[in-house]
Design a protein around this nucleic acid. Structure first.
Lengths: 206, 206, 206, 206
DNA sequence: CATGAATGAGTATTCATTCAT
DNA sequence: CATGAATGAATACTCATTCAT
């Protein structure tokens, strides 16, 4: 409904759409977006080449739909989790933890989302920007709330803060992905949040 | 280190090599690595297509040599600047400032280094990893020194610290690059370093 | 004559056949034969793609049946109109006028018959040739009668005469079709017949 | 110079252009424009597929350049032949004879020019229209001159006359082409011109 | 050293046709 | 009879790379 649906919405839901999407993500993750061919995706999905075009406008559209879908799901989950009363810092921790959990659940998806997504064609830039902007906005919102309730410093440039948090979380996940997902990601959420909050400088133990 | 220099080291230094490299960076920056063609680079460099193959093994090699070259130059500059006595935190600030300055001097190079470099082919991964690893090592070294002289907290995972610093600096530059280099980057070095050091949390004003 | 009728003669006459044929002619006229797709025809006819194959062997067969049908109808009409006594020249005028009238009644059909018909595949050539041959024979017959009753010159090659008449009528209709059917075609029948009969040369007003 | 030249005019004249053009005409003549593939043309020309794109923008461009070239050549020849004093009727005969001669010299070219040319894509229509218009204009000019010097009737619609002459010449050539060029075309010029001039009607033997 | 014409492998996309429902 | 999802063969065009001049 809310996701930018297939080319022809009249197609029966017989699982082909999901098959193809899953196969594409796997292939993108393994080969890289530009090196992946439609034929490879089709073979991986167990369908004919032409079938892909019944569900996606073209190669780029596969990536675009994936990005939209994932972003949507992520933010839906996050907002549904946190309608309650919580401090800004708690919410920040929760955000990071969720991001780590989701990534860890499906490394292929994470790889594509973290790495390959940013390689696709010019025209798709908008969808990607939207997705990233949503993340930035979310972080920005948390920081502002924190400043209001006095838990976050006022003498910071929000732009820098947003970039710092976004970039760090992103990088930790990407490192994990590129390393083959060999270690456990979720336990890093706590110390990372702490680091972002406290900084690296030793407090002069007044 | 000396790995993968030009195909034919006997080539006269008549400026063609630099011409081609500069043109390639410009084209990569504008079109993206995969969308750039050898013909475009040749035209931009004012040489024939075939000439490129006298100086570079192939398309990928152009990127690889660029990465090696830039990394080398960057670290040479940095190490030459800081043989003197300085605190770890001062060196960190200096590193960030240098990175910002270099980026600002040539936006094309920065764009390629920050964005396009990571898109190239599988085989090149090693060169890129080397370059990034050097940066990580540098940061790691600074942090360890800081922990020894008591200016940096001990209860942090060095891996996370390195990623945080690397990613944040990287992201700030990338944002600037993607925004078209419209604002001034260097003045952000100071507040960014401060943010990384102090964190976002308001200190309980003992 | 009865050659190549529908694939399955057992089909009910529920109008689908005519629907598809009419839609196909419209689409052929607008897109050109080779650029037209079965899917376009199906949509225009309001049926499923597969349905077309219940009534026609394949894309080419649609054109073949159209040609046969039109030719048949045209010659039936003509022969029924002229069982009576008439001079050869009167019959020629009548033939031209009929051709013009039929064309003007349905520009889509005329466009396909005049232009697109000749573009279709190799194998169809025979059907087309048959249709054109019938026209030639008709004209040839008229000319011979005219020579016998003394109204048509004897010092002409019948082959050339047939080609002249056929080609000229054909071309006038095609021009009209290509111009979008904007002017009135029928009034041209009289002067055209006159021109064909009298030639262009000024008679030396003996 | 005046012909719409190749994509890259800097290419050496090593005969490749002509090779490809000639091969394309042969293939178009044998297979039809839409059924011809670039691979077939390349093979027939003894070059690689890609080479074709060094000399022509695309498949359609081959046809477009052929049409422009042929038209130009034809009209150059005609106008150079007839700068002298001649009656309109003599010029008409000469035009027909030239057309027949040129066609007979190269049946492949004639076939493409007469038949396949009119099948190509939408966008090319303009080039074709230009070529045909030039012919019409030429005939129109001759007819008007004839009316002025009193050799051609005044009570004719010039539009119809032009169409009649064009169509008839065209049709006679096309018939010959389609019949495989088996008989001699040029001798038909004289009786055809006569027929167009005198018409079919027996003069009432004053 | 430099050129740039030639190569031909590689690929996204289309579309006539089939067949299970 | 009717459907339309699925098929996969077919094809124009691109572009990194080579090599004769």
């Amino acid at each position: 409904m809310t996701r930018g649906w297939k080319v022809e919405p009249k197609l029966k839901t017989n699982g082909k759409y999901e098959q193809i999407m899953a196969a594409a993500i796997r292939v993108f993750a393994e080969q890289g977006y530009f090196q992946s061919t439609i034929a490879q995706i089709a073979r991986a999905a167990g369908v004919a080449d032409g079938t892909i075009y019944l569900y996606f406008k073209n190669k780029e559209d596969i990536m675009a739909q994936f990005v939209n879908q994932q972003s949507q799901k992520f933010f839906d989950t996050f907002t549904s989790m946190f309608s309650e009363e919580q401090s800004a810092l708690e919410r920040l921790k929760a955000l990071i933890k969720l991001h780590f959990q989701v990534s860890q659940e499906d490394r292929y998806m994470a790889l594509v989302y973290q790495v390959e997504m940013r390689r696709s064609d010019r025209l798709m830039k908008e969808d990607i920007k939207d997705a990233l902007r949503m993340y930035h906005d979310l972080v920005g919102q948390i920081v502002e709330e924190g400043q209001q309730d006095g838990t976050i410093r006022h003498d910071v440039q929000i732009g820098l803060v947003k970039r710092m948090i976004f970039a760090t979380v992103d990088e930790v996940i990407t490192s994990w992905v590129m390393a083959g997902g060999k270690y456990d990601l979720v336990p890093l959420a706590e110390p990372l949040a702490d680091l972002l909050m406290q900084g690296i400088q030793a407090t002069p133990t007044v």
